[in-house]
Design a binder for these strands. Structure first.
Lengths: 339, 339
DNA sequence: AACGTTCTTGTAAACGATTACAAAGGGAAC
DNA sequence: GTTCCCTTTGTAATCGTTTACAAGAACGTT
C-alpha cells in the first residue's frame, strides 16, 4: 500500500502554494513552469485527491443512491444494472440500498440520506404509504421515483403503462382465439399489483370478455414460490386457455404448475409474463412477455436525476414508457420450436 | 425540503458551544441541562450531521465498495444481496461497481478507490491478470477477494472448493449409474473456468472414467447464450448420459438444447448445474446443482473486511467454503415430481 | 517614465464536523 | 479555608480540499 499524500506534500515538493497545486490539477490556468513542477511532484508522490475533502468543500458527493425493494426480482437487477451504467458514465458512483419491501426500512434509509452521503436518489417503491410520501418530501436531495405516485404528489417520475401492457397481452391472446383468459397477479396492495389488475379488467371488458373471480388469483408476493401457490389455486378452480401473469416469475410458476398437471403450453394454455426479463427467455418453453421497458425506465430515471442535479430548478418531469410485447414460445402464433 | 442545518445553528439555539453539541449528540458525558437543550434544539432544527464532514475528520467513510464482474449472473446478484445485508447491519453503506469483466475497468476502479470514497473493497474478479494484482497491491484500503488468487498473492480471501464441488456432482452421477459424464465449462482462461475444468478431470479420473475431448465443451462466456452454443456442439459430437455444467445458466442452456432434441431429462441425460442459484429451482425440471456456498462466501467476505477495518493488522485470513449438492429433478434418485 | 491591463501566484477563509487542551466549577478531604 | 481532584464546558486546531481576494509581475500604451 502506498502512503497517502496530500496537497501540502505536493506543494512542498513542487515549491509552490497549495492553491497552485489545486489549480494545476483542476486544469485552471497556470504558467508552464509551475504546471510542470506540480505534475512531476504529483506523480512522484502518487498523489490522489481526497474525495471526502473535495465533497465537503464543493458540496457534492458525486454519489447517487438507488433504493430497490426486491433484489430477488430480476427486473430490479436489470434496472440496477442500467442505472449503474448511466450514472457511472456521468461520473457518479452508485450507492445501493436494498431496503426490504418494508416501508419503514425505506423511511430509515431516507432519513440517512439527509446526512448527505449522496447527491440524489432513485427509488422504486413497491408500496407507497403516506409516511413514505411525507419522508420523501422531507428529503434534502432530489428524488426520482420509478413507478406511479398518488395523484398530487409531484416528483420527477418515470413509469410504465402497465395497463396498456396488459392490453397488449390480452389482445395477442384474443387474436390467437383464446377465450378464457385468466390472470395471476401479485399483491393488490402494491402499486404495480393495483395497476396490473386494473389493466386486466379494462382489457377484458374492452374485448367483451367476462370478468369472473375464478379466473383470477393474487399471489402473496411477486415471487416464484408465491406464484406456485396462486397457480395451484387458479388451476384447481377453473380451466382457462390462457393466463396472463403480472410478472415473469409468476409466469414461470404458472408454467411449472401446468407442467405438473400435464397441461401443455401453449397448445392447451398460453402463458404470458410481464417485465420481459432474462428468465422469460431462459424458461422452457420461453415465455412471451410484456416488455414494460424496465431498462428504458431505469435509464430515463437516471438521466432525469442527473439533469436535476445539473439544473436544480428545471420543471418537474414525468416520463411514461410505452410497453411492447415480446412474443416467444409460450403463446401460439409465435416461432414455436417444439418438435 | 427542509433547510440544511449545521452544528453552529444548533449550538446557537441551545446557547452552548459546538463542542458541547457534538458531545451530546455522540453520547459523551454532559450535564442534564445541556443535554436537554441540545436535544431540543437539534430536533427543532431537524439537525442531521453531515456524513462528509464527519468522514473528513475521522477518516472513515463508512462505505464499502463491491466490484462484481457480471451482474447478469444470478450468483453475483445473490452475493451482492448478502454483502449488502451484512455491511448494512454493521453500519456501512454499499457502493456498487459493476465493472465489466474487462480487467482495465477494474483497474480504473481501483485507482478511483484511492480517492478514499470507501473504507474497503470486496472484489470477485473473473480473470486475474498481473496488472490487476499490481493494482490491488497499490490500493490504499483493505481488499477482500472472493475467488482464488495466484500463489504468493496474499489478501484476505474467501473461495469455494469447486474441484470438490464437481467431485460431488460426478459422484452423485456415478452412484446413479451414469457412465458417460460430459462437462460444459465456461471460458477456461477465467479463474472459475480453470478450477472447474481441473475438478472435472480429477473427479473423472478418480472414478476411473475416461477423459475424452468429445465429452467436453467450453462456452465462450458464463451465459445462457454461450451455453446454448456449447451444448449444441457437445450433443452433436457425443451422446453422454449425464452432463455437468460449470454454472446454472449453462445447465439451463443444456436442458433447453436437450429438450429441442427431444431428449428427456433426467431419464436419458441427467443434468447438474453449479452455484445453486434461484434459476436452478425455477427451471423445469428443476436442476440439481452444486452449492458452492455463494451466499456463505459473500457473508464471509463481508465479515472479513469488516474485521480488517476494525483490526487493521490482524493476520491475513483465507477462508474456504465447503460445497454441497442440492439434489433436484434433473438427476435421478431425486424427488422426481414428473408424473 | 508612468499608468493601466492582464496574467500568475500566494494568503487565508471557508466547508462541518471531532477532539486535544485548558479553564472553570463543584465537591470531598483534611 | 485550603488543597486536590473530578466533572463539565468552551476555545481552537484539525481533517484536505476549493476559491475569493489581494499582491506582484509582466507587458503594452501613451
Amino acid at each position: 500500500m502506498t502512503k497517502k499524500s496530500t496537497l501540502v506534500l505536493v506543494a512542498e515538493r513542487a515549491g509552490v502554494s497549495i492553491a497552485s497545486v489545486s489549480r494545476v490539477l483542476n486544469g485552471l490556468p497556470a504558467s508552464d513552469g509551475v504546471t510542470e513542477r506540480v505534475r512531476e511532484a504529483a506523480t512522484a508522490l502518487g498523489y490522489v485527491p481526497s474525495a471526502t475533502a473535495r465533497s465537503l468543500k464543493v458540496g457534492k458527493t458525486m454519489q447517487i443512491a438507488l433504493a430497490v425493494a426486491d433484489v430477488g426480482n430480476p427486473v430490479y437487477v436489470a434496472m440496477m444494472h442500467e442505472v449503474s451504467r448511466v450514472v457511472t458514465e456521468a461520473g457518479y458512483r452508485l450507492v445501493l440500498s436494498s431496503t426490504g419491501s418494508d416501508p419503514s426500512d425505506q423511511i430509515d434509509f431516507l432519513a440517512g440520506l439527509n446526512r448527505g452521503f449522496a447527491d440524489g436518489l432513485i427509488m422504486s417503491p413497491l408500496r407507497v404509504t403516506d409516511e413514505l410520501v411525507a419522508a420523501l418530501q422531507e428529503t434534502r436531495v432530489p428524488v426520482v421515483i420509478i413507478g406511479s405516485l398518488p395523484a398530487g404528489v409531484e416528483f420527477d417520475n418515470v413509469r410504465a403503462d402497465s395497463a396498456k401492457g396488459i392490453g397488449l397481452a390480452v389482445k395477442h391472446l384474443v387474436k390467437a382465439g383464446r377465450e378464457r383468459i385468466a390472470f395471476i397477479n401479485g399483491p393488490v396492495d402494491t402499486v404495480p399489483g393495483a395497476a396490473r389488475l386494473a389493466g386486466y379488467m379494462r382489457a377484458m371488458t374492452k374485448h367483451g370478455m367476462p370478468l369472473v373471480a375464478d379466473m383470477q388469483a393474487a399471489a402473496s408476493d411477486f415471487t416464484y414460490r408465491a406464484g406456485l401457490d396462486a397457480a395451484r389455486e387458479l388451476f384447481s378452480q377453473s380451466t382457462p386457455d390462457a393466463v396472463v401473469c403480472a410478472n415473469d416469475l409468476l409466469a414461470v410458476a404458472a408454467m411449472k404448475e401446468l407442467s405438473t398437471r400435464g397441461i401443455r403450453v401453449p397448445e392447451q394454455v398460453a402463458v404470458i409474463g410481464m417485465d420481459d426479463t432474462d428468465i422469460a427467455e431462459l424458461a422452457n418453453p420461453s415465455i412471451t412477455s410484456v416488455d414494460l421497458g424496465s431498462v428504458k425506465r431505469a435509464r430515463a430515471a437516471a438521466k432525469l436525476l442527473i439533469r436535476r442535479l445539473e439544473t436544480p430548478d428545471a420543471p418537474v418531469e414525468q416520463v411514461v414508457i410505452k410497453p411492447s410485447l415480446t412474443v416467444r414460445e409460450s403463446t401460439p402464433g409465435a416461432p414455436n420450436l417444439t418438435p
